[in-house]
Amino acid sequence: MRPELICPAGTPAALRTAVDAGADAVYCGFKNATNARNFPGLNFTPEELAQGVQYAHARGAKVLLAVNSFPTAGRFDLWRDAVDTGARLGVDAVIVADIGVAAYVAERHPGLRLHLSVQAAASSPEAIRYYVREFGVRRVVLPRILTVAEIRQVKKEIPCEIETFIFGNHGLMVEGRCSLTNYVTGLSTNMDGVCSPAAQVHYDKEPDGCVATRLGDFTIDRFGPDEQAGYPTICKGRYHVPARDDAYYAFEEPVSLNLAELLPQLIEAGVEAFKIEGRQRSRAYVRQVVGNFRKAVDQVLAGEAPELADLVALTEGQKQTVGAFGSKKWR
């Protein structure tokens, strides 16, 4: 079995870069709340997606459309339009999280391949089988909370393909359920598609060279002059709590996932697709990360030891981990 390399495309230029760098498939979204990277200046118009599909298909690559946020009452037309437009433009699959959207795809576009987003947080065989049975889901993107051994076991108990993240953002909140941004900004990661909206992010440089990061009215971190930085997300912030003398990462640390060293075990466990996170990242990131993982995956499949390039410069906080894939005691 040859696992697919699924690569991020935040812009048309990034899509072409990913395809040229060896992506088997790219994933992308429209410029609205229907996907979980609804960031300013990012994503695709229908016209841009049409051109992207044409470019990818001409080179043997697939396009997966992320429609993976959760519609709220009265706004379902937006999600329906996204699915219909994607189907009309010939995307190879839609990635969904919400059961209403999944039902719509299954009923209106039964020929369109359906992938279950990580935002659905389906990690047990029972949950995954439910989505397969009810909506005909063909692939599940697993949350980043399972060890390789657990993935191997899950694979034996489900009738669909498995996709796992192998590089990028390392978010261990119950995916699709995080309300931290909503609590602070009034906008929802899951329903508006925006985690830490840039309009409410502020960097304040202080006289001593430190930089304080604020989200809305809340200071979520303060970096010393020579400290590495992370994203301005609440889950990666440092906080003072009564039980500690110093501020500390109460939820998660700024660190990125990198499973390059686990590729052979993941392939052996039956994983059908490897996902690289980072639709919000640049073409330079896409070119480097996709190119390196293309080479590494091909080497593993050829029975060779993969040459693992150093990607730490691209990681959040300049740190990387295999996270829960290696051990539940990862932190």
């Binding site: 970096f223 700024p254 990242r281 640049s282 330079a284 300049q318």
Partner: peptide, 10 residues
Amino acid sequence: EDGDALFFSR
């Protein structure tokens, strides 16, 4: 260059 990487490295 990747802007986020430049940010992470300050």
